[in-house]
Design a protein around this nucleic acid. Structure first.
Lengths: 193, 193
DNA sequence: CATTTTAAGAGACGTGTCGTCTCTTGTCGC
DNA sequence: GCGACAAGAGACGACACGTCTCTTAAAATG
């Protein structure tokens, strides 16, 4: 807090705040994260935080968005439906373990509109993947109910959020091979008997 | 707070506390629920609360458990797999709308061990239902992977927790008719081609 | 029935965080 | 070089936390 002459601004200051936020999150978790703690660690005043974000939740969400971009900018295209979907789940898992379930629940409790956005994005990503699979002939159609399209990601998200154990590596393949792909194939056989 | 001679104890006092808790939850929501608020509304002291529960989350969980019992004590048995599963989802929906998503997220953020318990119970319920369906010949086997057994309830829970819209009445039937039953039948045809 | 034990009612206490406010003073745009 | 802007710094009242003390009903004991 010693105003040692040099005074940061703009991007430089915000980068310092983000670094402080991640450090605080790692050290005390979301539940005990405080604006004062972040400000102190970033060597700045609370006013600087409140000028930019209205509360904890918005600060954290901005940090999450800045940290790893949207999956929509990098839709997997590996050549097979199975590995595309697994890539999506892997991306989800890495993002989730980076931030931890307590942060997710905390943010969702305080800002209920965030996750629906993420789900809309995920729906678009999976639609693209399914479309390509249909073009390759892996599945007969990509015209599926919303709930079926996002089944894999929804189930995986459910597992990430509601299991406090760290998610097992086999979870993604179990969901894809045991549920998602079989369901898509079952629809195939029913629609073309 | 006026100590008007009469002094409540035991069950009577706890009933008053629970009533106060529900009223506070309805009025200010979980995020702004405070021990002081509950105590004041129940016309008692904070010490009385802290003597029984260590924090907000434990108090709320006790209230939830007391309010509507476990579904394990009342497993649906309607005669068909479809309506049994729908009955389970309906029970879940009623419980969920009673308390609201903010309460659920808040509790899960503070006490991460609660929901896994509920999931274990649900697994047992669905196993029983599937077993009966298998005995009736509706499905060839009830010996399914855990993830498949609880697929319907997991998806429904996902929807309840991550959608901030009130859950649509059609959600349960869409999940059961569009995903759960087709998957069980797909397994059927694969295991007995 | 008298006595002891338990816990409810009441509220004071120190602590921490909230979000707002004020003040001085670097830093940037013009 | 000057004026506007915002960073550094910290005081402020409000509130909830969780702990504590004290008095005194109400139950348990014998």
């Amino acid at each position: 807090m010693a105003d040692t002459g040099r005074r940061r601004r703009g991007a430089e200051l915000e980068a310092a705040i983000m670094a402080a936020l991640w450090a605080e999150l790692a050290e005390v978790g979301y539940a005990r994260l405080t604006m004062e703690g972040v400000a102190a660690r970033a060597d700045t005043g609370k006013q600087v935080l409140y000028r930019r974000w209205r509360n904890r939740a918005e600060l954290v969400i901005d940090a999450l968005r800045a940290e790893n971009g949207s999956i929509a900018d990098n839709i997997p295209d590996t050549g097979t439906l199975r590995s595309d979907v697994l890539a999506v789940l892997d991306w989800t898992a890495r993002r989730a373990t980076r931030i931890g379930p307590d942060v997710m629940h905390g943010v969702m409790a305080e800002l209920p509109d965030v996750e629906p956005d993420a789900m809309t994005i995920m729906h678009g990503v999976l639609t693209t993947i399914l479309k390509r699979a249909a073009d390759r002939g892996e599945i007969p159609t990509a015209d599926l109910p919303d709930r079926v399209v996002t089944l894999a990601s929804d189930l995986f998200r459910h597992e990430l959020l509601l299991t406090n154990r760290p998610v097992e590596p086999s979870a993604a393949t179990e969901i894809v091979d045991g549920i998602y792909l079989p369901l898509l194939l079952a629809r195939t056989t029913r629609q073309a008997p």
